[in-house]
Simulated scan of single mutants.
Amino acid sequence: MAKTEVYQIRLDSEEKKQAFAVFKQLGLTPAQAIRMFFRQVVLTQSIPFNIENKATFTPIPERENVPEENHQDLFLELDQILNSKQQ
């Protein structure tokens, strides 16, 4: 069996609730859905969906040397992209 690890993330409460409801409708646990996402990232070597507004998003490989404590900036940038799409 492959070695497994635990990874924590912060989620918007309402988005988490809505996403978990979708997973339940699909017969998936949240953990299964996340593992499916990661599997697709590995298989396709990309995000398995289109990210619109690419002009403001800098791919992570260009930021490989950013200390881990600064990765919060990456998530803030992604949140801004996703939130601008909803407006």
Rank of each mutant, 00 (worst) to 15 (best):
K54P: 00
A55W: 01
A55L: 08
A55R: 08
A55P: 00
A55V: 03
A55F: 05
T56V: 09
T56F: 07
T56P: 00
T56E: 10
F57D: 06
F57P: 00
F57I: 12
F57W: 11
T58K: 10
P59L: 02
P59G: 05
P59Y: 00
P59T: 02
P59I: 03
I60Y: 11
I60R: 11
I60C: 11
I60E: 09
I60G: 06
I60S: 11
P61R: 00
E62S: 11
E62C: 10
E62R: 09
R63P: 06
R63G: 12
R63D: 12
E64L: 13
E64I: 12
E64S: 10
N65A: 10
N65H: 15
N65C: 11
N65K: 13
N65I: 09
N65Y: 12
V66T: 12
V66I: 14
V66N: 03
V66R: 04
V66P: 04
V66K: 04
P67Q: 13
E68K: 15
E68L: 15
E68D: 13
E69S: 15
E69W: 13
N70T: 06
N70I: 03
N70F: 10
H71C: 07
H71M: 10
H71L: 11
Q72L: 11
Q72G: 09
Q72W: 11
Q72F: 10
Q72P: 01
D73A: 12
D73P: 01
D73E: 11
L74A: 05
L74Y: 06
L74V: 06
F75R: 05
F75I: 09
F75H: 06
F75N: 05
F75V: 07
L76Q: 09
E77S: 03
L78C: 01
L78S: 03
L78Y: 07
L78Q: 03
D79F: 07
D79G: 04
D79N: 12
D79I: 05
D79W: 05
D79E: 07
Q80T: 01
Q80P: 00
Q80Y: 05
Q80C: 00
Q80A: 04
I81P: 02
I81W: 02
I81M: 02
L82F: 06
L82K: 03
L82T: 01
N83S: 08
N83L: 07
N83W: 04
N83Y: 07
N83H: 04
